[in-house]
Amino acid sequence: MTLAAIGLGSNLAHPRRQIARARYALTRLPRTRVLAVSRNYLTAPIGTTGPQPDYVNAVAIVDTSLTPRALLARLFEIERRQRRRRDPDGPRNAARTLDLDLLLFSSRRLHAPGLSLPHPRMHLRGFVLVPLVEIAPHAAIPGRGLASRALRAVRNQRVVPTRVHVSR
């Protein structure tokens, strides 16, 4: 009933496999249908100290009758399931292998603890805008105008499609 956009990102533990698993997990969400998923894109991490592997990013459009909160809770659940197992001797906050962001929820605009809609920084992020515009070329971001226009403003960010999908 409501179209939502979800951002997927990973840069640890076989990122493309993480994204592929997350894509599948989205198809199993209750009261939700996946309408489109973008290709995978590679993005070099920006603003990090020390070297980090590239990110793999994608965006999915779903049709859902869940509330934004319920959908977000389900996304956290998927993240949790795919979080790297913690090594008891390792650092306390083991890095997350998967990030799922609720980017858009139709016209919904809200600022609440833990949930802002639309995602407050999505219009600045090439790795969100490129895959979003691939599958939803005419999408608008509430309060920000067209996604394609926002994309033109960040075209200096390097976001390149990966060659193939990992099918699993």
């Binding site: 179209l3 309408l35 049709d63 016209s107 999408a139």
Partner: peptide, 9 residues
Amino acid sequence: LRFQADVLL
């Protein structure tokens, strides 16, 4: 997606 409408598909 453009006009932030709900969908019935």
